[in-house]
Every structure is written in C-alpha cells, then in structure tokens.
C-alpha cells in the first residue's frame, strides 16, 4: 500500500490539519508521500519533509497552483495519484473543492470526510448531520478520501527527514482564473485548531456585541465561532460558521452563547470535550448536550465571565 497525502498550506507555511491527515494515512498503513502543490512554496515542502512518518515529499511549484484552483490541482493530483492505493486530503474547503474532481477523473467513487479507519478499505463517516455514522467499504483500485481533521490526533510535526522531489510538470487547465480574495485577519487561533472555542448565535443581536466574546476569547486564548443565524444576519463573516455546513470543531472547551442548538449546529461541535451553554431559555436544546448549562441573560453573564476567567 502507498498513501498520497495532499498538503494544505498558504504557500508560506504548512497548515496543521495536514498532520491530522497524515495520522489517518498512518492508520491506513503503507508508505506515506506528501504532495505539496503551490507557488513559491519550497518552505512548505521542507516542513512537510520533517513530518514524522513521511517517506517522501513531492513538490509542484508553479503559478498554476498558487491559488489552489480546483481545475489545475485536480489534474495534477489525478496524474500523480495514479500509482497510489489511497489519495487523502483534509476535509477543508480546499480539499472538498478539488478532491471529488480527482475522483471523477480517476473514475472512482470518493468517500467524504472520514472520521475513522477500520482497515485499509473500510472507513467510518458521519451522515445526516452526524445523527448516524456509516461504515463503508470500497473495493476500488484507488481510495480517494477526505479526512475530518478533528477525528484524528495530529502526528508530530518534527522527527522525519524525507527527501523532497521536484515535479517538473505543471499545466493550467485554462478554464478558470483567480480574481481575488478577502481573507479574514485575526490574531486569534484558527477555529478548527483552537483548544477553546466561544461561539455566538442570534442571541448576540448584532456584530458589535461580539466584542464581548472577543474579550473573553483573548483572555483564554480562544477562537470565536458563530451559528448560521449569526452569519446570515451579517453579525460576523462566513468563515466563523460552525456546523454541518460550516466548520467542524472539537476543542477541549466549547462555549455556546445565545445559540439554541439546532441539529445543524450540533453537528459541528458535539464532539467537543466539554460543552458550556449560556442561554436565557432553559428549554433550549443546546442544554441537552451541555456539560455545564447556565440559564442567564448573556448580556449579564458574558461580561461577568470576562472578569472571572
């Protein structure tokens, strides 16, 4: 067996979720190769070469891969991936964007967002907003999988010394081009990697009130998330949405403030170790999953929380 892991990065540094994906590759077994595709990303390849358990790093450094355009990346991965029994990418918006394209090019049915490895051909994955866990088996020549990062503990970032091999080939598929991006800037930890996440919902009433959560978050070194209702209402940007159709988080501590606990929201956070809910409605479904529930007006409770932590 041989596993190809697609590295997630921003051309400057390797994203932590790559380490969780390598962990899934280790659970599958066999030789692990990491593919780094980007532009001016040699430093990323060097970082990938140090990951514990990685035996080879392939580097495709070309302008065609700078913005991870799915059309270009998929052609590359489908070509490089042919010799492997498994192709893995993190289940991020990037992995979800290009990997199904790779699978179709290879004529295989991909398996999305695996949360467990039973053996090299049998995997677990959540369906129906995490209300059921399916065990699925594939007898295809290549297994194409996205990996739910929060379900696998990351491997060590250091300890390996793999060789980096430059792939000379690069091709622009010629059907898409990058126009621009607006990336949220934040000094807080990344939502999916943070040890503590504090999320606000419709109960926050407006974007300014999120300041209260930012203050608590900064004292705790936490990331701030939101429910769909808070994003739809324009309180906060889309990249903060936690849930079935947003980001999946599983921190040590998740604090839900003014969030009712719809199944779509629970799907994104119910694997957190400890859940706290602050809600003025004692019947709110969020209390059914909360380890510690506080029935209170958030406009009183959150400022007090900021003082006491």
């Amino acid at each position: 067996m041989s596993v190809l892991v697609y590295a997630e990065h921003d051309n400057a540094s390797l994203k932590g979720v790559t380490l969780n994906t390598v962990a899934a590759a280790q659970a599958i077994g066999g030789d692990i190769t990491v593919l780094v595709a980007g532009s001016g990303c040699a430093a990323v390849a060097e970082a990938a070469a140090k990951i514990a358990g990685v035996s080879k790093v392939l580097l495709a450094d070309d302008a065609a891969y700078e913005h991870q355009l799915a059309e270009n990346v998929a052609d590359l991965v489908a070509e490089v991936g042919k010799g492997y029994s498994h192709i893995l990418a993190p289940a991020t918006t990037s992995g979800k964007n290009f990997l199904p394209r790779v699978a179709a090019l290879l004529d295989v049915q991909m398996i999305s967002e695996i949360s467990g490895v039973v053996n090299a051909t049998t995997f677990q994955r959540p369906i129906y907003a995490g209300n059921a866990i399916a065990t699925v088996e594939s007898s295809q020549a290549t297994n194409v999988l996205t990996v739910r990062g929060t379900s696998f503990d990351p491997v060590a970032a250091e300890g390996g010394s793999a060789a980096v091999e430059n792939l000379g080939v690069a091709k622009d598929a010629g059907v898409s081009s990058f126009v621009g991006e607006e990336l949220a800037k934040s000094d807080r930890p990344e939502l999916t990697a943070a040890k503590i996440v504090i999320s606000g919902g419709r109960g926050m009433q407006n974007g300014d009130n999120f300041e209260m959560l930012y203050k608590v978050a900064d004292k705790l070194g936490a990331a701030v998330g939101a429910s769909r209702a808070a994003v739809d209402a324009g309180f906060v940007p889309n990249d903060m949405q936690v849930g079935q159709t947003g980001k999946i988080v599983a921190p040590q501590l998740y604090v839900a403030v003014g969030i009712s606990g719809a199944i779509q929201h629970l799907a994104g956070m119910k694997d957190s170790k400890v859940i706290v809910a602050i809600n003025k409605d004692e019947e709110a479904p969020i209390f059914q999953v909360a380890d510690y529930g506080l029935v209170a007006d958030l406009f009183e409770a959150v400022p007090e929380l900021e003082k006491l932590v």
């Binding site: 295989v108 049915q109 398996i111 049998t122 959540p126 369906i127 995490g130 209300n131 059921a132 866990i133 399916a134 065990t135 699925v136 088996e137 594939s138 007898s139 295809q140 119910k270 859940i275 004692e282 209390f287 059914q288 999953v289 909360a290 380890d291 510690y292 529930g293 506080l294 029935v295």
Partner: peptide, 19 residues
Amino acid sequence: LVKTVKVEPPAERQAGIKV
C-alpha cells in the same frame, strides 16, 4: 462502488448539570 456495511447511532453525550 462503495458499500454501506452498517449504520450506527453516534456516541451519546452524557447529560450535564445546570450551574
């Protein structure tokens, strides 16, 4: 091409307490 072997309920969370 992918066979569903079984479908199980997710692990239940223990009910917590109110503070």
